[in-house]
Design a protein around this nucleic acid. Sequence first.
DNA 1: ACCGGTGATGTCACTTGATGACATCACCAT
DNA 2: ATGGTGATGTCATCAAGTGACATCACCGGT
Lengths: 172, 172
Amino acid sequence: MQLYVERGFEQTTVAEIAKRAGLTARTFFRYFADKREVLFAGSADLQEHLMRALEAAPNSASPMQVVSAVLDAAATALGQHREHSRQRHSVINTNAELRERELIKLASLSAALAEGLRRRGVPEPDASLTAETGIVVLRIAFERWVSEPHGADLSQTMRTTLDRLKTVTTAR
Amino acid sequence: MQLYVERGFEQTTVAEIAKRAGLTARTFFRYFADKREVLFAGSADLQEHLMRALEAAPNSASPMQVVSAVLDAAATALGQHREHSRQRHSVINTNAELRERELIKLASLSAALAEGLRRRGVPEPDASLTAETGIVVLRIAFERWVSEPHGADLSQTMRTTLDRLKTVTTAR
DNA sequence: ACCGGTGATGTCACTTGATGACATCACCAT
DNA sequence: ATGGTGATGTCATCAAGTGACATCACCGGT
């Protein structure tokens, strides 16, 4: 990320990254599938973490309540290092390929959540709709959180964003 | 798309595409920014079409009603050639890079819709939430529509999907 | 009929991302 | 000392893009 910040993603070559890490380009590609993936190393962990939050929700919870619990877990996991998040977010947002990669990571997360909801007996299309909606809230709340210098914490932002969503979808 | 269907996206080389079109690879890249883009040629048109639908909605319409009108327009635009849609969808869905590209096209659409809603006086985060929610419905409805051999038409599927979304977000 | 401009295409050279094949080397258990 | 294993390096190669330049068809004005 140092290099991506310094000279931009496209202007950075894999050979340079490898050199700064004291490695060869070939070795880089043994750890990361491609040049983008290095910024998303933690996403598998996050997904597992959120899935555990989903499993931990009580049986009585409605689909939306399950997703709400997942968002709480996401907020405490992501809401820690604001400055680092901001930097990473800025790098990703200034490059189309990186935004693509981020979107597909979130899509994967959404698919996993939907699958989890189905395992809990939620039928389609409700499972997918609830999961995707949750990801929308996650994304928009995160976006707001990083762009405000010292605003509310991420959990709070998530909750108010989710509330707005309910309002907006309900209003006739 | 012929070639992508015949041998798969990755196994198809730009030189081959160009050759079948009676051109050179260099010329291909003058028309399409990259190998993926060729499958998304119509997306700018679709976006403009939907933006016109958004502008055409009455001033009295709520954000969600505007999005609903946009979804109607999308359904009639996309709901025509089911077989072609199915084929394209299958090609895109069997390749990660293509799915990434599709996601970012939809993200662009969503951003445009949000911008359109803001121009209508809808504040943030409501504008983004409504737009993103609309895209979620669009995607899930489209998915269901292509995967059912002879089910309801796309407009109908969109409407019922939107209804389910409202139910799911409202349920306590 | 000639001329100059314009746009589309081709050719060539080059960079970079990505991958397979093979060689090395450190380390560990026997 | 021996052999196996995992991580790394080296080399060759392919395909995606891109810039620079040449070519060619066509069109309008003289």
